[in-house]
Every structure is written in structure tokens, then in C-alpha cells.
Design a protein around this nucleic acid. Structure first.
Lengths: 252, 252
DNA sequence: CCTGGGGCCTCACGCGGCGTGAGGGTCAAG
DNA sequence: CTTGACCCTCACGCCGCGTGAGGCCCCAGG
């Protein structure tokens, strides 16, 4: 004879109102009603409720849940597999967050302050509710260039102003060090190189030291980039490359 | 000169409207405003925003977040530690859910159907947003009795009817086996003992075999319980105890 | 038999956490 | 001086329920 709303509510840890709501919006309509109009939930109803709660926990909207559950091409096992996959992904994300917190704790203890990007890194690219296809579409071919394109697409004019201003500062710092005869493998030049790398990571993509070294080479080899430096001072492109390499070595 | 709303929004992966909202409700008011009235977020503001987002992610309401963040007796390190703890707990819960899903998959494959309790077990006693004190208050002195009290407090009259009915069935099954001379350490008596254990686990608390054996002893030793069995048949309390022990040994 | 208490029902309003314009000022680039 | 991408402040709307109000059902106890 099935379960009453109250019983189901207590089993599932939700309120009666919630079940009423799910009935109202057609997300979970009990298969039967008693003569007096009481809702009677059957086993399959409980099955469905469990699915609903799982997807809800994972951040799906009720409408989205209705869509995935009413997808005729998805048998129960498919749902379970998908849920498992989503859970694993979510766990991974939380572990990243935990790691970030731990890093923040370390930084605190050492008295180091983090850049805004480092701080929010873990929040940035999170999208819990996407399906595998979309996720793969977005992250499948992710190399630095893709990531850059992806991020810059959302930048505003103001951002670009800030970017060019920051890039200009770095360029000037390089030029000043170069003009003053500071050695390219000295601390000051390396610090500027580090600023340069941070600039790229901040605005474009995660620039590792390896990538940075590659960039250094390109600044010399590719005339379009080289010109940018050589226009300021002759030999500056080579100086930048050397500073970048020294900085990478220092962090290796 | 600080960051604009738009910049902060993009860093943190939230909308401008969200930042406006946090300003409106006083959760995160930018420390400065430009001459034209533009919001300017400073480094400490970003710090705070990060905390807000963390707690939000963990399911806190904005009001709760305001309370914990404005608690004067909590330095940054305390927050980080708490966040880490909360994250770990949440991860643990998700892992349980993942395990439950896996079990459900196994059950499907084997063609076994789960009881409602098994199905929703993982949802039951979840309360992600409590503070350590409250959690400890609720789970610190958790022995079986406490858990029982906690759960039974929410039972309705209907539940109690179901409980007494079920308990009656078990009692009758014991009495029948006893009357028919079935040995207490035989399969049939042990099965009834197992039903008894399941009954307790279902309605009161997680009854392990160890606890069950303790109960068996009590049914003989404590006259209030013993009377319940002896009233039905003389020697039944001892029979129940023996069956319970045999059942525990079989599952050890 | 009837009364009381705990369910259950259907409205229907409210709240938290924003989304989404509308209407208008600001400010660097062209 | 204009244009466009920001920014501002209202203010209304949506989702996912919470929280009664008013009333029916049902069964244990008197």
C-alpha cells in the first residue's frame, strides 16, 4: 500500500513541503493516491526520489533533474554511472580546495601574501553541472593557447588597458635593468622575469617555467616579438631571454 | 587603487550583481569608493571575499557567513583550519555517497532490490553546516542510547504503531520457535535473532553484533525486559539470549 | 459512540540569493 | 566631442522551498 508523505520525508531527510513541491512541479508525482486523496509513494517512486536527491546534491536545478531523469535513453545503470562520475569529480574539486586552503595556511605561517589569482584559482574554472560532453568540449584540447583564447575572450576594454599597462611596466623594468648594466642572471633581472611570468599567468594562461623558457627563445627568434624589445633597446630581447632562463633555473 | 567590481567578479568567478548584493547586505563592503562612486576592492576585501565564497561553497547561508567572519575571536588561521576541517568532512560524505552509488550499482547487477532505509541511509543524518561545537554536542557523546533518543524524537504515532507491530511479530516468531522446540543455536532461531537486530537498527540505532549480545544479556538480567518475554513463555528470555549469541557468532 | 490528536490535504504568502533589465552617470580612446 | 564599455542605483522576478491557515481523515482511549 505504499508509503505516506511523512514516512518518505523522514526516510529521505527532506520535509513534507519539499515532496509537495516536487509533486506540484511534476518532478516526482506519487504513483497512487488513497481514497481520501493521500499521496502514496511506491518503491519506484522512492527510486526516483533518490535520483532526484542525488542530482540535487550535485547542484542540478530541479528542471535539469527532470530533464535527465526523463531522458528515455538513460537506464538506471547509466544514471548510477553518471552520478558516480559526478561525485568523483566533485570530490576532486573539494580536494583541490582543501589543498588550496592548506597552501594558504602555509603562506600565512610564512608571512607570504598571495596574489588575487592564486587566491581564487580554485574557484575560477568550476562548473559542476556540466555533462561530460560539454566538459570535454571545453577542456579536451586544452593547451596554453586554447586556455588563453578562452580567457581573453571574456576580457573587457578595461582589462586590456590594465594588461597593456602592466606589460609596459615589465618592459620598462627590463629596459631599466638592461640600461643600468645589471647582469641578466642577477637577482634583479630574474625578479623582473618572474614578474613577467606572473603577468602571463595572471592574464593568459598558466605559464610554467618550461613554457616561459620557450617564450624567451621565441622573443629572440620570432621577429614580431623581437621587434617589440629591440625597438626599446638593441639587444634587449636577448637580455630578456637570458633573464627568463636564469629565473627558471633558480626555481627549478 | 584597488580593483573594480568587474575585475573582482571575473577573478572570483561570480557576477557583478553578486558583489552588489554582498555590499547591500553588508557582507562584503568594499573599503573604498572612487570619486564617481565606483566600488574599489582592496586586498583585504579580496581576502574576505575568498572566505565568503569558501563558506558559501560549503553550504553556509550568507547570514551565517557574516556571523563567523565577524566573530572577533577568530583569526585567519582559525578560519583556514575550520575550512579545512569542513572540507574534509564534506569529502568524506561525498565518498560515502559514491560508495552508496557503487553498492546500488552492484545491487542492480545482481538483481537485488534495496530497502528504503538502505537507499536513503546516506542522506539521513547529514548536516553540513554545523560548527564543531554543535557537531560534537550532537555526536560527541554518541552512544547507542543517545542515537536512539535522537531518532525516536522524530517518530510519529504511526511509526510507533509500525514499530510495536514489528516488534510483536519478532516476539511471536521467537515464541513459536521456542514452543516448537527449535534449538536456539539453529538456523531458524538465529534468523529470528537477525530480524530482531534489524528491527533495532531500523528504528533505533545501529545495532552491532556486539551490542546485540549485550542486549541479549540484558533481556535476561533486567527484570523489566525479562518480564516482557517471560510473560509469553517461561524461559523465553534465556532462549532469546542464546539465539542472539549464536547469531552473532555466525556473523563474526 | 464521540472526542482528541496526529496525521493528511490544498491554498497562498514570504524569504534568501541572486538574475535581469531600466535609466542614467563616468571615462579613456579615437 | 562622441562612442562604447564600464560603473551606479532602483526595482521587479524567479527558484526552491518555509510557514502558517483552514479543513478533512482516522484511530486509540474514554
Amino acid at each position: 500500500m505504499g508509503y505516506s508523505v511523512g514516512q518518505v520525508a523522514r526516510f529521505a531527510g527532506v520535509t513534507v513541503r519539499t515532496l509537495h513541491h516536487y509533486d506540484e512541479i511534476g518532478l516526482l508525482t506519487p504513483s497512487e493516491r488513497s481514497a481520501a486523496g493521500y499521496r502514496r509513494y511506491t518503491e519506484p517512486d522512492l527510486d526516483r526520489l533518490q535520483q532526484v536527491l542525488f542530482y540535487r546534491e550535485l547542484g542540478f536545478s530541479l528542471e535539469e533533474i527532470a530533464v535527465v531523469l526523463d531522458d528515455p535513453g538513460a537506464d538506471p545503470l547509466t544514471h548510477l554511472r553518471r552520478q558516480h562520475e559526478l561525485l568523483r569529480r566533485r570530490i576532486g574539486r573539494l580536494e583541490e580546495m582543501a589543498a588550496a586552503v592548506q597552501r594558504a595556511m602555509e603562506a600565512r605561517k610564512m608571512g607570504i601574501s598571495l596574489t588575487p589569482e592564486e587566491r581564487f584559482e580554485v574557484f575560477g574554472d568550476f562548473d559542476p553541472d556540466r555533462y561530460a560532453e560539454e566538459v570535454e568540449e571545453r577542456w579536451g584540447g586544452t593547451d596554453a593557447f586554447e586556455q588563453s583564447r578562452h580567457r581573453t575572450a571574456r576580457y573587457t576594454k578595461d582589462d586590456w588597458r590594465a594588461i597593456t599597462a602592466e606589460a609596459g611596466e615589465v618592459l620598462e623594468a627590463f629596459a631599466a635593468a638592461f640600461a643600468e648594466g645589471v647582469p641578466a642572471d642577477g637577482e634583479r633581472a630574474m625578479d623582473v622575469a618572474e614578474r613577467h611570468r606572473a603577468h602571463i599567468t595572471r592574464w593568459f594562461y598558466d605559464c610554467t617555467y618550461e613554457i616561459h623558457k620557450g617564450l624567451g627563445e621565441m622573443y629572440v627568434a620570432d621577429p614580431r616579438f623581437a621587434a617589440n624589445y629591440e625597438r626599446v633597446a638593441e639587444g634587449l630581447s636577448g637580455y630578456v631571454r637570458d633573464a627568463v632562463h636564469a629565473n627558471a633555473a633558480r626555481h627549478a
